[in-house]
Design a protein around this nucleic acid. Structure first.
Lengths: 287, 287
DNA sequence: GGGGTAATGGAATAAAAATTCCATGCATAC
DNA sequence: GTATGCATGGAATTTTTATTCCATTACCCC
């Protein structure tokens, strides 16, 4: 047996290394521990065992297999890790920012971005009108298939929406303009389908044109954009307006992703409710 | 006796207020608690008593005098402080959630997602090792061009990275496997280039193979993944591990996006510093 | 200075938690 | 099939930790 890890990082490395050779339950334990170091620091063996869905014995065995005398011994490392971390978020940013020269610029930046995006997310739910959200869901629910349009920065969101829709078993197509075929892809939209158009400033012309075309055909359109003044908004049956974080003139996407994630899961829950009123939406794995 | 404090802040206020009227030992205890909240969160009554140079009984008495049922009860607040920092937000969610019938499910869900993603973002900067971040930037800075690999859910992140890199005028290519040409695209990577591989559970086999191939060729690899147990992690020159929010078995992407955003901008700032030391990174528009 | 009151320390007790141990299950090799 | 070895769950045990209680001390008012 190797020597026992002396720091959290060492433990992490050790677990990573040993992982493949561990038994099923011990692997399960390993994953839980690395995924929830926070909880491990505080909770008791019994509580953790319950959460990780293993028995207390397994936790102890795991600790032993890492070379610790017992679970408590291992827990020490999880705790020491938290002690190093500063308690208050804003304080910590300030600490990093003022200690110029010590912490690298990149880490300061990471704190700034995280904080800015957190702000954006905090404001998001309050700014979205519940009525609009429901209307969007109505449209999507009634659609035979959903086509998703988004260029440049919006492409990221569009591809995520498509991915998420697939996961709830909703037919979805990403209008990606591959081979310069925006027009062709848009014409392939059936009359019972719907369109989700994502568009952020500076609004890509090709997206606008494509959306206009769909609008003329009477295809229902849900627009996700960053301003109600967006040229897309007036084409929309429902427009969802998202304010993104901005750091160093660079806009984030977290709020939009959060919104689209919600759209997809809410849609999934509606489907489940229709099909089997008793079950939840929790049956897609690792989505 | 007043009611028991429900948050660490409330407790702090309460102690401050009561302080003058406390006995000598209790004052001593109060000072110790406020000076070392960190320790209080973790240690046992006996240990703390020793450190504070009072007896265990005194600690218990103190907790009781603040209105708690026992010491453990009070310790809860010291712990919760280290874990979650905003009771306001959670309260708001709960308010929305309990007012069932009024707000539609979808809006509740939006609040949940926003909160979960905020959590993920809160933990992100503390979990990323500044050294790793710098190493990743070193690799990217020295690369002639950067290739970005990511399938399925990771594709969203990969395409965002590519987009962001273009915006800081770094040559970037998205390895998208279009036409089933993963192998071909990977072989097109030059010997002075670098690879960013994004991979989340369930780890896509095609990504692993592609990364393996690059690894054998000695191409520097930066991996962005959700667990240090990821099969990609061992191929990496630097592995950045991100914990994403999870609601209803559906994982978010906000933390990963935030991290990649940071990588791109930090890289941009380095370039600017090299070219014209006086200016910042703020010259790309609406990126 | 004496009697009372509140504070304190420490030992005894109760509660909770960690750990051990064994019976059972499961898979694999023969 | 059967036997063997490791993995697992759960109950029993031990250890640790929190709490209570009471004897002692310090302080204050009379």
């Amino acid at each position: 047996m190797n020597e026992t890890p002396k720091s959290f990082e060492a433990l992490e490395a050790r677990i990573t290394e040993d992982y493949p050779s561990l038994s099923r339950r011990l692997q399960q334990t390993a994953r839980f521990l690395l995924d929830h170091p926070q909880k491990v620091a505080f909770a008791t063996v019994a509580k953790l065992a319950q959460e990780a869905e293993v028995t207390p014995s397994t936790l102890i065995r795991f600790a032993n297999s890492c070379g610790f005398k017992g679970f408590s011994d291992m827990q020490e490392l999880f705790r020491s890790r938290l002690v190093d971390e500063l308690p208050n978020y804003t304080e910590r940013i300030r600490a990093v920012l003022t200690a110029t020269g010590e912490a690298p610029d990149s880490t300061q930046l990471l704190w700034e971005f995280a904080e800015a995006n957190r702000d954006a997310l905090e404001q998001l739910p309050g700014r979205i009108d519940p009525k609009h959200l429901e209307q969007a869901l109505d449209i999507l629910e009634n659609a035979e298939a959903i086509h998703v349009l988004g260029a440049r920065r919006s492409f990221v969101v569009a591809s995520y929406v498509t991915y998420a829709l697939h996961h709830i078993d909703k037919r979805a197509f990403l209008v990606n303009g591959l081979g310069g075929m925006y027009g062709e892809q848009m014409r392939a939209i059936g009359s019972d389908d719907a369109l989700i158009a994502v568009s952020f400033s500076p609004y890509a012309e090709e997206s606008r044109q494509a959306a206009e075309q769909a609008h003329e055909r009477g295809i229902p359109i849900v627009v996700i954009t960053d301003s109600s003044l967006s040229p897309m908004a007036r084409l929309a049956d429902v427009a969802l307006v998202v304010h993104e974080a901005e750091v160093k003139s660079f806009r984030g996407l977290t709020a939009s992703l959060c919104l689209t994630q919600t759209l997809a899961i809410a849609l999934g829950m509606r489907k489940d409710k229709t099909l089997a009123p008793s079950s939840g939406a929790g049956d897609q794995e690792h989505a």
